[in-house]
Computed example of a mutant assay.
Amino acid sequence: MRELIRKIMRDKQEYKEQMARAEALPEDYRFVFQKIHGYMWSFAGGDGSDMLTTQQELIELFESSAADGKHVLDVTGEDVVGFCDGLLRDTKKWTDPARNKLNLDLINKFGRGNDAQ
């Protein structure tokens, strides 16, 4: 139990540090980050630690792109939702169990080596 409390405290501190870095981004990057942040956290699954990693990667990308003088939409593209979905591809989401169950049900019904019709 003590280790769980420590992990929660570390994650909370990491989140605060990330948000401080996001606040330091140029205005256009900060605006897009806030929009993406709201979108991506609506899908957070498990304890959210995977989302912290994804958020860290996004902040690093935005920091380096801003330093290179790139426009934020040159980084995300105009399909920002598509950008987000790509960013979240390998991140645990609350929708994962339903998605996995659907795939498993269909594989069990129609998969190779299964003669059930």
Rank of each mutant, 00 (worst) to 15 (best):
M19T: 06
L58V: 05
P97V: 00
Q117G: 15
I5Q: 13
F31C: 14
G82E: 00
E23Y: 07
L25M: 02
G77N: 01
S49R: 08
D11F: 08
K70D: 09
A22S: 02
I8D: 12
F31G: 12
V80H: 01
Y29W: 02
G86D: 06
I5P: 11
H37D: 09
W94I: 06
L4M: 12
E17M: 09
V80C: 05
Y29G: 00
Y39P: 04
M40T: 05
A116Y: 14
F110M: 10
P26E: 01
E27A: 12
W41A: 04
P26T: 04
I36V: 03
A66F: 03
N108L: 14
G77Y: 01
D28R: 06
I5M: 11
W94N: 15
K93D: 04
E23S: 08
K16F: 10
K101M: 13
K101E: 13
T95D: 05
N114Y: 09
D68R: 11
V75K: 01
L61V: 10
V32Y: 04
H71T: 12
K70T: 09
M9Q: 13
L58I: 03
P26Y: 00
F33N: 05
D50W: 01
R10A: 15
L87H: 06
S65M: 03
K109S: 14
P97G: 04
D105M: 13
A24I: 06
E27R: 08
S64Y: 11
D50E: 05
V75M: 02
E60F: 09
F62M: 07
L52F: 00
E27Q: 10
A24K: 08
R21V: 06
M1P: 15
Q55Y: 08
R99E: 15
V80M: 02
A22H: 04
P97C: 03
R89S: 09
R99G: 13
M19D: 05
M40H: 07
R21N: 03
S64I: 08
A22L: 04
K101G: 13
I8Q: 14
L88T: 07
R10C: 12
A98H: 14
M51G: 08
